[in-house]
Write a protein that binds this DNA or RNA. Structure first.
Lengths: 146, 146
DNA sequence: GTTCGTGCAAACGGTTTGCAACAAT
DNA sequence: ATTGTTGCAAACCGTTTGCACGAAC
């Protein structure tokens, strides 16, 4: 169950302690964008773990590139398992962040900024608005995934 | 000098007290992206003003749509005078935010997300990387403006 | 017994809030 | 007098840090 998670930790030079594995298991398998406190609330149900350990572990995972830290909404950092490039859509009412597939939006001419002195290492489109209900669960799911 | 600023405040139903005019004058004329504390440091040199008043005023201006609050970097909110649409480039070393002209990058197919249940009200491209020095000041300036 | 990870509580930094003083109408 | 604005300090909240305990090699 956590064999693959342990493997990933070790590959990245992280000692797979029980606590770290628990945090990593949760954050690597979520498709949401939980804050550190939310991770703590969830993982803390299964074993005794302090906020500090959760924060430290998440930062460690982020440093090693296993997950990504996002600061899109105000006042808090959220984490997501690092899966390829994608864009983000933020529901203005609920604050919920949705992943938008890379191919769903096309961005062009970013290379053109090179000449103006901008070495763009990464970029994404950040969208804000409202999320509507959609009839077909297939569509919704496909858009939500990745 | 502050006649136009006062006018803009009144147009938006904001009573133009001396303190509010001072804050508004500063934030509306900057082309940077100062945090509330930075605004306080600057405005505080000219008149006695408390942090609370600066924070309250900036939030008020943001609520009324005169300026925009951004949370791109972690741990702090920065403000910018609301001038049309543009993108943002964040220097990963310094944290400095640069405005990138709307036309410099083209984004297409955002409308296509409508069908997937996303009512996109606004969007922008957020880029991260490193800012290089550029020989021609003309180029640099043009890219930085707006 | 040295090294590393953890829990706890305190510290921290940016932001907000409560409240009494103070305009201005 | 009522209404709204300000300064100050305290509260707040997410996050980090210091430290002593404990497990593992």
């Amino acid at each position: 169950m956590d064999a693959d998670v342990i493997a990933r930790l070790e590959e990245n030079g992280i000692q797979p302690s029980a606590h770290r594995v628990a945090v990593a298991e949760y954050i690597l398998h979520t498709d949401g964008h939980p804050s550190a406190d939310e991770v703590w609330a969830k993982v803390g149900k299964r074993l005794l773990i302090s906020r500090a350990t959760v924060y430290n572990t998440l930062n460690l995972l982020a440093d090693k590139g296993l997950i990504r830290a996002l600061t899109l909404a105000e006042g808090r950092v959220v984490f997501e398992p690092k899966l390829g490039r994608h864009h983000h859509f933020i529901d203005e009412q609920s604050g919920v962040i949705h992943d938008v597939p890379w191919e769903a939006v096309r961005v062009s001419d970013v290379e053109g900024l090179e000449a103006a002195g901008y070495d763009v290492r990464e970029y994404q489109v950040v969208m804000r608005g409202r999320r509507r209900e959609v009839k077909e669960p297939k569509q919704t799911k496909a858009a939500r995934r990745r």
